[in-house]
Simulated assay, not measured.
Amino acid sequence: MSQEKEDGERLQKVIAKAGIASRRHAEQLILEGRVKVNGAKISVLGYKVGMDDSVEVDGRPIKHTEKLDYYLLNKPVGVITSAQDPQGRPTVIDLLKEVPARVYPVGRLDYDTSGALLLTNDGELAHRLMHPSYGVEKTYRVWIKGPMGINAIESLRQGVLLEDGNTAPAKVQRVCGVSKRSNEELRPNHIEILEVTIHEGRNRQIRRMFSAVGYPVFKLERIRFGSLSQGNTLPPGAYRALTKEEIKELRSQVGL
């Protein structure tokens, strides 16, 4: 058997930090004999490994993460939420090329959507933030040609039927663009801005929801991700490191 490092880190934590699985799932992988350290199968919990140990899960090596880094990016339109793009388009990683750590986006924003995007090498946090069971909320500012009828708003609040099933109820509120007069008195194609909060993460979900109720989106920005608020501090393409308080709050939100 591989020699255990007394001052090392627990194997299940190393696997979780690498983003392979949650810590609980990592424990299952170990008990099922699917994890090897330096070529030897490890099937007991609590085994400790060091930075120089080779760890494999189902025969695939994982990378140790020594220092955890967290950045909030204001992703601009026209940038891919990916580490690289075969078509040569700019990616969010290109915007963080001055960052010494190798970080990855948590979830994604569409090419034509801007706003708050978290990038980190904390695999366990990323896994939980993206897992639907934790119900992490995302708030978007949505521009449409309105005014949006109350029936359409209620449909969004109750959940709408898409090709991949019904959406969960959304929180919807008007921000600006609608006058104090009744909807019937407003001009057609009146520009309206709404804020919508969801906890799901389906592909192009907000755009598909609004199209389903008859109001295509022509501009979309994410203004909040979990406890992180972009505010007005970051211009498009800019980023900043999270504060210790923000990291603590974000991790607490998903039980870490």
Rank of each mutant, 00 (worst) to 15 (best):
48 K>M: 01
164 D>I: 09
108 R>C: 12
104 Y>A: 00
159 G>E: 00
251 R>P: 07
138 K>D: 10
117 L>W: 01
68 L>G: 00
57 V>S: 13
199 H>C: 12
200 E>M: 06
68 L>T: 10
175 V>E: 12
59 G>H: 12
81 T>S: 15
201 G>E: 07
210 F>C: 11
93 I>Y: 06
213 V>H: 02
180 K>R: 13
245 E>F: 12
89 R>D: 00
13 K>T: 11
24 R>Q: 10
14 V>S: 02
134 Y>H: 14
137 E>W: 08
103 V>N: 00
244 K>R: 13
126 A>D: 06
246 E>S: 10
93 I>T: 12
29 L>R: 05
230 Q>G: 14
41 K>T: 15
164 D>E: 04
82 S>H: 12
256 L>T: 06
208 R>H: 14
32 E>G: 14
82 S>N: 11
37 V>K: 09
90 P>L: 03
244 K>T: 07
244 K>S: 13
196 V>Y: 03
222 R>M: 01
58 D>H: 07
208 R>P: 08
64 H>S: 11
58 D>G: 09
137 E>P: 01
56 E>P: 02
127 H>Q: 14
186 L>H: 13
244 K>Y: 05
220 L>Y: 00
152 A>Q: 14
51 M>K: 15
67 K>C: 07
119 L>A: 04
199 H>M: 05
103 V>M: 10
214 G>E: 13
162 L>K: 08
103 V>H: 01
95 L>T: 03
156 L>H: 05
247 I>P: 06
215 Y>C: 00
221 E>K: 12
125 L>W: 02
181 R>N: 13
7 D>K: 10
123 G>D: 00
9 E>S: 02
75 K>A: 07
27 E>C: 06
162 L>C: 10
250 L>Y: 00
198 I>G: 04
74 N>S: 05
5 K>T: 12
87 Q>T: 11
129 L>Y: 14
92 V>Y: 03
51 M>E: 15
211 S>W: 05
9 E>T: 13
210 F>V: 09
254 V>H: 04
173 Q>E: 14
163 E>M: 11
22 S>D: 07
243 T>M: 08
213 V>M: 06
93 I>M: 12
191 I>T: 08
24 R>G: 09
91 T>H: 06
3 Q>W: 04
194 L>F: 10
64 H>W: 07
251 R>Q: 12
105 P>T: 08
